[in-house]
Amino acid sequence: MGAEFVILSLAPLLIGIFAAVACALPGNFLLLRRQSLIGDAISHVVLPGIVVAFLLTGQIAAWPMMLGAAGAALVAVVLIESIRRLGRVDVGAAMGVVFTSMFAAGVLLLEQSDTSSVHLDVEHALYGNLESLIWLDATGWSSLLDPVALQGLPPELPRMALTLLAVACFTWIFWRPLKLTTFDEGFARTLGIPVQLISLGLVVTAAIAAVAAFDAVGSIIVIAMFICPPATARMMTNRLSAQIWWSVAFAALSAILGYVLAGYGPLWFGATDAVSAAGMIATVSGLMLAVVATIGPHRTA
């Protein structure tokens, strides 16, 4: 646990944890509302969003891309809702139609535009590049107190921390209305809670978490963290507050274990190269889900 760890692993590890928790928090409510696949849809449609943002600005910068991704998520939500209502198509099929088509459009745009000079491709969008977010300016643990070295932190780290803070604040401030609208929409409405607005707020929060995490870690982690930790937590307890804490713990644990296993696991088997951290984090969260689904205290209703 020396300087090497701080340089190579500290930043990606923290980014992974922040991204995982930021996605897991809204994921709890989406799970209970049976809207889990919104995360899946959002993470597919951000691809055309970032490609359009790149085509408009001509550069790979964080803010235009996040705006583009958010715009694409909005377009997708509007499209899904209009197809569902105007065409009377069931919601699963409407989602399937929209996100595959938008993803296809994104791939086509990417192929048609000249992106050879920049690092923008489908594989990157899918599984990110967590391993490359290293902190080159660090020399050891003491760098954490060195303002110059802190300047050199990968920009994804503060951005992801900020996103997590925003998501946590949303969950904390709107705890009561979120809980009420999730479990008993009719009752919440009689209390005068703006049910539609809360639902929209939740989807927007989820989209923000997804887009920010997508930028840092790729869409695999986003989908996995929206669903696996909350689903695992759901089988541990019947209380919502406990479920949230369990999901945070599972998310953080998946990020840490996944990152460590991906980075150091192959070395234990005598291999020389690390495997995909994003994929390993998703795998670990799935293993936890499998274990709890077999022996968890509340695995059945």
């Binding site: 889990s36 696949l37 995360g39 899946d40 899918l126 599984y127 695999i220 982690i221 989908i223 996995a224 929206f226 669903i227 696996c228 689903a231 991906a262 495997v275 995909s276 994003a278 994929g279 390993m280 984090i281 998703a282 795998t283 969260s285 799935g286 889900l289």
Partner: peptide
């Protein structure tokens, strides 16, 4: 669906 999709795909990427 979401859990299987993301976990299997993640493992596939590994």
């Amino acid at each position: 669906i979401g859990a299987v999709l993301s976990v299997f795909f993640g493992f596939g990427i590994v």
